[in-house]
Amino acid sequence: MRAVAIGHPEERKWQRYTLRAFRPGDEAGLASLFAACFEEQRTPEECHWKILENPRREDTATVFVALDESQIVAHVGGLPVEFKAGAETVRALIACDFAVLPERRRGLKKVGLFLALARMVEEVCRDRFALTFGFPVPAAHRMETRYLGGKDAGGVPSLACPLTIHGARWLWGRKGVARLPATWLAGHKGLRRGLRFRGEIVVRRVARFDPFVDELWEDVSGCLPFAVQRDSLYLNWRYARPGRPYLLLVAEDGRRPVGYVTFRTVRFGSVSLCLIMDIMPPTGTGVSERLLCEVMLYARANRVDAVRCWMNEKCAFYDVLMTHGFVRTSSTDRLVYKVFRRELETASIGRRENWYLTLSDSDGL
């Protein structure tokens, strides 16, 4: 059964539910839905920031909700971004926060609220965007690939570096303690190597990014076949998320900005983690190594148990991470994408190693 339009292309009826675009004032209802579906809470302020303050937001909605009378019981949507796809820049959607109240779910054998809402989003958005992508949880992954035509491009490389016994046990279990000394030795060697650049590359903390990142993106993007455009407009919105304090570091070579790194610390249960959200340039140069050193020094000084990140193994920075004691970890994060513009449907877009993905591309962090 498909949703039936009820007088507006962004509002439809499906069974007893009203499916419509997100509206200002829905923030509290959306936060209540997330509280019932996720361990990590979303505040109304976060919902407002994510949907209404996005600088790439259009008049036509990209986030939709399902209501049972006045209660929001489901949510499906995407965050508009500028996206580098080969030699051109296109508009894309990052899938975000799919949620259906547990008591309203119908499993995989019947069409339920999730599919009805997701199909509506696609019908409204497919002519305005070139593609959509995301990193769905296993249950949503099955729905997207089985019913919505999403394609699995493979697992996202997740790396971690334990700094304490607690972090080693979190990463490797009971045997982790025996592996920690080798990690520490590699980390110390990496720090010594990176700190060689301390005299020529100065790192400072900033509250916002200057337009220099636009020039940096132009310089670096040619080496990144598929990636979210990391310009100052996007970055200053991305790291202004309410309730999420991020640290932004800029590297300067003779007072000329040449790179940046963003990160934050979080707790997962009893483990304290430092998450490297993004780094530019993702190369093996002294700039990226110097920035990594600052992150590692911060993590050690603040008694963080482990440092974690995503990094494409084709980037030279992947090798830098390995020399600092990082190891590949198991992860359920998988890239799922769907192309709306036929000319973009090439073999290269289907290979995950051609995508530059970092934790900043993950909606949940």
Rank of each mutant, 00 (worst) to 15 (best):
R2N: 14
V4Y: 03
I6E: 03
P9I: 06
R20L: 03
A36R: 10
C37F: 01
E39A: 01
R42F: 10
T43W: 01
E45H: 09
E46G: 09
H48V: 00
W49T: 07
L52A: 10
E53V: 05
V63R: 04
F64K: 01
V65G: 06
Q71I: 12
I72Q: 02
V76M: 12
G77K: 04
G86L: 04
T89S: 07
C96P: 00
R106P: 01
G107T: 01
G107P: 06
K109A: 13
G112D: 05
A116H: 00
A116P: 00
L117S: 02
A118Q: 06
A118E: 04
E122A: 08
D127R: 11
D127E: 14
R128M: 07
A130K: 01
A130Y: 00
T132E: 11
F133C: 06
P138L: 11
H141E: 11
L148N: 01
G149T: 10
G150V: 00
K151M: 13
G155D: 00
S158R: 12
T164Y: 05
H166R: 15
G167R: 02
R169Y: 08
W172C: 09
G173N: 10
G176T: 02
P181H: 10
P181F: 09
W184E: 02
L185C: 03
H188Q: 10
G190T: 06
F197G: 00
G199H: 14
G199F: 08
E200H: 07
R205C: 12
V206G: 03
V213M: 02
D214G: 11
E215I: 08
W217T: 05
E218R: 14
V220E: 08
G222C: 11
C223P: 00
L224C: 05
A227D: 05
P242Y: 11
Y246V: 14
Y246M: 09
L249V: 05
V250G: 02
A251Y: 09
D253Q: 15
F268K: 13
V271D: 06
C274Y: 01
C274N: 04
D278Y: 11
M280A: 15
G286N: 08
S288R: 06
L297R: 15
R300Y: 07
N302R: 15
R303M: 07
C309V: 14
W310M: 14
K314I: 06
Y318T: 03
V320I: 08
H324T: 09
S331Y: 06
T332E: 13
V336F: 05
K338R: 15
F340E: 01
E343N: 13
E345F: 13
E345A: 15
E353R: 15
Y356F: 15
S360G: 14
